[in-house]
C-alpha cells in the first residue's frame, strides 16, 4: 500500500497477534486496533494474517468434536418456535380471495374490540417486522427460564431495537377468570406489557414486546379478569433483560 497515508505502519508484531485474534483472545480495543492495522498493511501481510486466522479456526473446529455435548431437546423446540415467530419471508404478495378478506376484517374487528375494551392488548401473533428487526439486531440476546407451574418462557430481545419477542412453551393456562399479565419493570416501577388468557396460552405462544425502555426485568403475575394496571399478586416468574 504505497502512498504513506498510513500513519501507523503495520508493526512486525502484527503477525504474532494472528493466533490470539483468531481465538478471540484479544480485548475489544486490541481487536479494533488489529483490524485498523490490517486495513493499512501490505497485501502480503494481510493475506498471511488471514491465512493464519483461517487455519486456527479450522483447527479449533476439528477440536470441537472433543467437547461435543448433546443439548436438551427443549432447546430445539424453543429455537424452532422462535424461528417460526420470525415468520417465513414473504415471497410474492398472496392473492387474497373474498373469504380471507372477510376473515381479516373480522379479525381486525375482534382486535379492535379487545383494544377498546381493555385499553391495551397483547398481540396474538407477533408483528413480523418487529420480530424481524429484533432477530436481525447485532445485539440480539436470549434469556429464558422455567415457569414454576410448568413450561418455559424465553425472551429474544434487542436494546438497540428497543423490542423483544416472548416465546412461551408448554405453559399451563391460567385459572378461569384470571389472566397471566406481563410487566416490564424498571427503577420507576412496573408497566403492563400485555396479558394472556387461557386461549392465548397455546402449547407455544409468541408475543411482541414493542417498547422495552429502561426495563430491567420481564415479570409475570396472575391478575383477575382482563388484567390490572399494576400488579396485584406476587410475581410468579421473571426474566432479567440483561
Amino acid at each position: 500500500m504505497p502512498g504513506g497515508v498510513v500513519t501507523e505502519p503495520a508493526t512486525p508484531d502484527l503477525m504474532t497477534l494472528a493466533t490470539p485474534y483468531a481465538l478471540h483472545a484479544v480485548s475489544q480495543a486490541e481487536h479494533d486496533d488489529i483490524e485498523r492495522q490490517l486495513a493499512g498493511a501490505p497485501e502480503l501481510v494481510a493475506r498471511a494474517f488471514a491465512d493464519e486466522v483461517r487455519a486456527v479456526r479450522e483447527t479449533m473446529a476439528v477440536v470441537s468434536t472433543a467437547t461435543a455435548v448433546e443439548p436438551p431437546d427443549h432447546l430445539r423446540d424453543r429455537l424452532l418456535a422462535a424461528i417460526d415467530a420470525h415468520g417465513p419471508v414473504r415471497q410474492t404478495p398472496q392473492r387474497r380471495d373474498w373469504r380471507s378478506i372477510v376473515m381479516a376484517a373480522a379479525a381486525a374487528l375482534v382486535v379492535g374490540l379487545v383494544v377498546v375494551g381493555i385499553g391495551w392488548s397483547i398481540r396474538p401473533a407477533p408483528n413480523p417486522t418487529t420480530a424481524e428487526q429484533v432477530f436481525a439486531a447485532p445485539d440480539v440476546r436470549t434469556v429464558s427460564g422455567d415457569i414454576p407451574s410448568g413450561g418455559t418462557a424465553t425472551v429474544v430481545f434487542s436494546r438497540e431495537r428497543n423490542a423483544g419477542v416472548l416465546v412461551m412453551n408448554n405453559v399451563a393456562p391460567p385459572q378461569p377468570g384470571t389472566v397471566y399479565q406481563m410487566w416490564l419493570v424498571d427503577a420507576k416501577g412496573a408497566r403492563s406489557a400485555g396479558t394472556m388468557d387461557a386461549a392465548a396460552v397455546a402449547p407455544s405462544t409468541t408475543a411482541v414486546l414493542p417498547d422495552l425502555g429502561d426495563s430491567e426485568t420481564l415479570a409475570f403475575t396472575v391478575e383477575p379478569g382482563g388484567g390490572s394496571s399494576q400488579p396485584t399478586t406476587p410475581i410468579f416468574a421473571q426474566l432479567p433483560l440483561s
Binding site: 470441537s64 468434536t65 467437547t67 461435543a68 455435548v69 448433546e70 443439548p71 436438551p72 432447546l75 430445539r76 424453543r78 429455537l79 422462535a82 424461528i83 432477530f135 440480539v140 440476546r141 436470549t142 434469556v143 429464558s144 427460564g145 424465553t154 429474544v156
Partner: peptide, 29 residues
C-alpha cells in the same frame, strides 16, 4: 451441529442455562 456448538458454549460458560441461551443466540444468528 448442535452437539459441537452446545458443547463448546457449555465448556466456556459452565452454566447450563446461559449455555442454552447463548446456543439459541448463535443459531438465531
Amino acid at each position: 451441529t448442535r452437539a459441537r456448538v452446545f458443547g463448546l458454549v457449555t465448556r466456556v460458560l459452565r452454566d447450563p442455562g446461559y449455555s442454552e441461551e447463548t446456543t439459541q443466540d448463535v443459531y438465531l444468528q
